[in-house]
Design a protein around this nucleic acid. Structure first.
Lengths: 249, 249
DNA sequence: AGACATTAATTGTTTGACATTTCTCCCATT
DNA sequence: AATGGGAGAAATGTCAAACAATTAATGTCT
C-alpha cells in the first residue's frame, strides 16, 4: 500500500481533492476510469473515510467525477460535456455579475463584442436549421400576448441560435455564459422600456443578413442592436436616477 | 425551529446544497452574511451534521461560501471575485478542451475571434501600463536562452495584457478562459515548430498598432498571427499524421 | 489599565455503525 | 439444460458520538 503524500498547507480534503484533480487534469486518470474505493483512498492518504468523502464531493461539485452505488459502484472520472461546462459557466457568470455591481454598459459592451466575433462564421456556415431556429424565435417575439419573461427567454434563444450558427462549439460554450448571464440585466431593461417592434426588426435584419451570407450587414445590424440596447440602458438608468433623487435617499 | 423541506429527488447533500445555492443566487443570503452553524442547519433540514457538511463543501468547492473556525466562525457567503471566477473558468475550459478532443483549428479560431473582439476597445483605451506590460512580454520573448515553457507563459501574459487593455472586466474574465485554456495546445505547437522571431514580430506589430490607437492595423496583425498559428497547427498535424502512418498504428 | 489565562463556540477530523443499492453467483425449479 | 429467484458481497449513503483545533470574548490578576 503506497502512502500518498500531500502538501502540508490548508485543510486535508482540499489538499486531497487537489491531488486527485491534478491526476485527472494531467491525464493520469482517464475518462470513465474508476477511482479506488473510499476505503482504499482513505488508507492511501492516511486519513479517515469522511475526509476522503469530502474531497470526492468537492470534485463531484465541479462535475469532475460521478459516483455510483452498488457492488460495481465507486467514483468515476467524468467526461466533461459542453452542456455541463456551459451550465457551470452560466451560474458562475450570473453570480459574478449580480454580486459585483457590473454596470449595464460594461456587460452590454462585452456581450455584443463577443457576439459580433461570431457573426462572420455564422454568415459563412449557417445551416437551414439555424435559420429556422432564428426565424421561429423572431415569430414568437412578434406574438401580441407574449409575456415579458417569455419575450426575454426568446431573445436569449435567438442569440444562442445566432452563436450556434457559427458552428464552433468552443465559441458556443464561451458565449453561452455571456448571453445567459446577462438575461437578468436585459430583463430589467425590457420590462421597463417596451421596445419590441424595434428589437424584432433588428433581429429580422440580422437573420436576413446571415441567410444572405452577408457578414458586414449582419455586423451592422448587430451593432445597431447593441447601440439600441445601450441607449435603452442609459434611458432606464436616468429615470432610475431621477426617481432616486426624488426619493428618500 | 422551522423545518426546511427539500425536493425528494437525488441525494440529500445535493438537495440541501441546491436550497442554499438558490438562497444565495436569489439574494436571500447576501454577501458576507453568516449562515447558521452546521448544527443548526442539521436540525433545520432534519439530517445529520456530516450530511450538512457535505452540502457546504459542495458550495465551498464553487467558491460560493468560505468557512472560518473559531468562536465567531462559520460559513459565510463569498463575494465572487473576477479572479476566482476566472480561475474556475480556466480549469473548466482546460478540462473541456483536453477531454473532448477539440481540434486545434476550432480552438484557435474561437480564441482569436474572441480576442479580435477586444482590439477596438484596447486601441481606444490602452494606458501606458498596458503598453508597458505588452512590451515587457515581447522583450522577454526575444531573450535568446528562454525555455519553451517560459516563452509560452509569456505568450499568454502578452495576450492577457492585450485583453486587459480593453478595460472591460467582463471581457477580461471571459477571455481569460479562452486564452489560458489553450496554453497546452499552443505549447504543443510551439515546442514542435520553432517560430519565435515571427511571433515576436507580430506581437510587436500588435503593440505598435494598439499604441497608435489604430484598431484596424491591430486587427490585421492579430489576424496574421491567427493565420500563422493555424498554419503551424496544420503543419504539426500533418507531420503527426505521417509519423502515425509510419508508426505501429 | 493592560497583560494573560480561561472559557465558550464553531469547524475539522476520526471512529464505528447501519442503511441502501447493485452486481454476482449459486441453487432450485421447470 | 435453461431460467428464475434469492443470498451474499461490495460499494456508497447516512447517521451518531466523540475528540481535536482554532478563535474570539470574557474575566482575572498584576
Amino acid at each position: 500500500m503506497k502512502k500518498l503524500t500531500v502538501s502540508d498547507e490548508g485543510e486535508l480534503p482540499v489538499r486531497i481533492a487537489a491531488v486527485l484533480r491534478d491526476a485527472i487534469v494531467e491525464g493520469r486518470l482517464s475518462v470513465d476510469q474508476r477511482l479506488p474505493s473510499e476505503q482504499d483512498l482513505a488508507e492511501q492518504f492516511g486519513v479517515s473515510r469522511p475526509t476522503v468523502r469530502e474531497a470526492l464531493k468537492r470534485l463531484a461539485a465541479q462535475s469532475l467525477i460521478r459516483t455510483q452505488r452498488g457492488a460495481t459502484g465507486g467514483a468515476f472520472v467524468n467526461r466533461l460535456s459542453y452542456d455541463t461546462a456551459a451550465a457551470q459557466l452560466i451560474t458562475t457568470s450570473t453570480l459574478l455579475l449580480s454580486m459585483n455591481a457590473v454596470d449595464f454598459e460594461t456587460a452590454c459592451e462585452a456581450r455584443y463584442a463577443l457576439e459580433r466575433a461570431c457573426v462572420p462564421f455564422a454568415a459563412a456556415r449557417r445551416t437551414p436549421d439555424h435559420l429556422a431556429a432564428m426565424r421561429a424565435e423572431i415569430a414568437r417575439q412578434a406574438e401580441p400576448g407574449l409575456s415579458d419573461e417569455a419575450f426575454c427567454a426568446s431573445d436569449v434563444a435567438f442569440h444562442r441560435a445566432l452563436v450556434d450558427a457559427a458552428a464552433n462549439p468552443v465559441l458556443s460554450y464561451q458565449l453561452a455564459g455571456a448571453v445567459e448571464a446577462m438575461q437578468p440585466l436585459m430583463n430589467m431593461i425590457t420590462f421597463t422600456a417596451r421596445s419590441r417592434e424595434r428589437i424584432v426588426a433588428l433581429h429580422s435584419a440580422i437573420a436576413d443578413a446571415i441567410e444572405a451570407g452577408d457578414a458586414s450587414a449582419a455586423d451592422a445590424a448587430l451593432s445597431a442592436l447593441a447601440a439600441y440596447s445601450t441607449a435603452l440602458g442609459e434611458q432606464v438608468r436616468q429615470s432610475r436616477g431621477v426617481r432616486k433623487a426624488n426619493g428618500n435617499a
